[in-house]
């Protein structure tokens, strides 16, 4: 592989799609507090299923939760994350990664009025997608800063019926 292709692959996998703006990840241990990160999220071990809502809580040090979704059928789905509107340090943020497709990524930052974040993806049956849940603040942490996200959220993957005509396909 030539250097440029390698660079491009690295760039693709490291892209920080904060959708607002992003800084470097923060992975180091700070004091006694465990710090997960975009590249080292806490794997919940949970496989999301269409239409079923999973409740969880982001806590300091564990601000990046990883879920998995393997659709049985191809088609449009809405990945959704809802956090309490107006929460002081939890602004819903979703990042969907298709590792089998050259780490294609879709990311979204939630509506500040509702704190609902929705990322709509046309998924392929049998592919496993990583679903990363965090707060927008965590994607903006400066090096050395600690996660402060502390709040509940709920996440789901809901099937959608969308009938777009052929576009750039």
């Amino acid at each position: 592989m030539n250097r440029r292709r390698i660079m491009q692959g690295v760039a693709a996998s490291l892209l920080l799609l904060s959708a607002g703006c992003a800084d470097d990840d923060f992975e180091s241990q700070v004091g006694e507090l465990r710090q997960d990160s975009l590249n080292n999220p806490t794997d919940t071990g949970i496989d999301l299923e269409p239409g079923l809502w999973h409740d969880n809580v982001l806590v300091p040090g564990e601000g990046w939760h990883l879920y998995h979704f393997t659709p049985e059928q191809s088609g449009w789905v809405a990945f959704q994350m809802q956090a309490p509107p107006g929460h002081e340090n939890l602004w819903s943020y979703l990042r969907i990664v298709d590792p089998e497709h050259n780490n294609e990524v879709w990311a979204g930052v939630g509506n500040k009025r509702t704190n609902l974040c929705e990322v709509i993806v046309n998924v392929d049956a049998g592919h496993t997608y990583d679903v990363i849940v965090t707060s927008q603040e965590n994607s903006l942490l400066a090096a050395g800063a600690t996660q402060e996200t502390d709040g509940p959220y709920t996440v789901a993957v809901s099937p959608l019926t969308l009938d777009f005509e052929a576009g750039t396909e």
């Binding site: 904060s18 959708a19 879709w106 990311a107 979204g108 509506n111 009025r113 974040c117 990322v119």
Partner: peptide
Amino acid sequence: HRHAEAWSSN
């Protein structure tokens, strides 16, 4: 209805 929403894809 909406404020500060954003999306991106590589």
